[in-house]
Design a protein around this nucleic acid. Structure first.
Lengths: 241, 241
DNA sequence: TTCATACTTCGATCGTAACCGAAGCATCTC
DNA sequence: GAGATGCTTCGGTTACGATCGAAGTATGAA
């Protein structure tokens, strides 16, 4: 039969638990050293080294040498999208890896998805942007309105600068915990960076979850209000789970 | 670390060559028996049976008993989308499973992707629909215009009937061979069925490729004309590889 | 009932890949 | 230079899962 691309190869790359743990850790968006990834995967350094070689040879990872450290990161955002897609599918089938632990709620509330905000807060942000007319929904796609450009400009997002980027401005990304869409693309990245810069939120160690300060949380919720009782303004974006 | 859904489990399901062959064969859209799938995977019936049990337990396959046959199919179109996504990724990394063989050109020209048309012809069809104003592109999404509804109605597609369906009407699907988008969704399915019903094209045995009759090919190309020299009318849809 | 077909289950084999200890190489610090 | 840290390579063990032969079950045909 031998038809089409070899899905078995990348399946087996993702299929090993140690490698899957590494990839999941790297979904946090920042580059990690081999030692950190070994800890994340729960294996020794030698084993991790072998896994990392395979992942790199398979085109999933990129590495950058820096002094005596070797930093690994996802090769590009297509890898992130692929992984989030598989996560969404796995979540929909109930293949959760764990009994819900103490870190689970934080992860569902706000986490990083490659480079943008996901989880309850991520979904809320997109919902609010749509509800207030900053982003319009067209079929499966999203586009920033003139009103939205002004709105985001007022909080310090340089939209025209982002437009010159090759990467799409708005993109929807299916959230595995909420099973609805959140905002990806260069705008999604810029918004999350903005929150970090302002000190509203920060990354947490060893986890994809994002910690909001009380003040940051207050400001975030005020900036992205939601009409009470109207939980699902995203027409056509949440049907695919 | 143990965060999020278990991507390793579904990765390992897809990661075995025999199972990957089975899934690829089932991307053809029709249900196959265990014996047929064993042949497709190149393993004995006992081995195939074990694989099919795992795939079903993992939620990738659904089975239907019919007499003494047991038919297997992809569980739903989300599985198809997941697989096509992985195929697209694998193709972009050059993980082709084979040296290009004799069946390869036919597969690139026209093939079935779960239930709709893919390959060169699939991409052409969407390009033409966009160029003639039947479908409009909005960000990453697609929507059928009033003009398009009339146009397709004239060839026997009942668009209003499709709209009542829960499944989205238009959806773009990334084509692994062309690396551009083709039309999925209920409309994509309806169009391919229409071609089959009219006798323009038919499925081929043991392959995902679609055979067009000379007459059908002529009609198809006439129905979906393309401005010469304008190869890439899809703005924003082909950037993601 | 008898036979054939379609498939599953059992049991055993076998190959591969994950794994780690130990040693080796590279880079930084002092 | 000496020592420490970060990582890779080598070699050998081990465990898991893919595989198939043989036997067992279910459905249909004669």
């Amino acid at each position: 039969m031998k038809e089409g691309p070899d899905i078995a190869q990348i399946g087996s790359l993702i299929g090993d638990p140690a490698r899957a743990n590494m990839l999941t850790a790297l979904m946090g968006g920042r580059a990690l050293t081999a030692t950190e990834l070994a800890a994340a995967a729960g294996v020794t350094l030698q084993t991790a080294s072998a896994h990392l070689s395979k992942l790199e040879a398979g085109g999933l990872l990129a590495q950058r040498k820096q002094g005596r450290h070797r930093y690994f990161a996802l090769a590009d955002d297509r890898v992130g999208k692929l992984l989030e897609g598989i996560m969404g599918f796995a979540a929909s089938r109930g293949h959760l890896r764990h009994r819900p632990g103490p870190k689970e709620p934080a992860l569902r509330k706000a986490r990083i998805c490659y480079d943008h905000l996901a989880g309850d807060y991520g979904v809320r942000m997109l919902d609010s942007l749509i509800e207030t007319g900053s982003i319009s929904v067209m079929g499966e796609g999203l586009s920033l309105t003139a009103r939205g450009e002004k709105h985001l400009g007022s909080i310090g997002i340089d939209v025209s600068g982002l437009r010159s980027n090759r990467r799409p401005l708005c993109r929807s990304c299916l959230d595995w915990s909420e099973r609805r869409a959140h905002l990806a693309g260069s705008l999604g990245k810029a918004l999350l960076s903005n929150f970090f810069d302002k000190g509203w939120a920060r990354r947490t160690e060893n986890s994809r979850s994002i910690f909001f300060t009380p003040e940051g949380e207050r400001r975030f919720l005020a900036l992205f209000p939601l009409e009470p009782g109207d939980g699902h303004p995203q027409s056509g974006l949440d049907e695919n789970l």
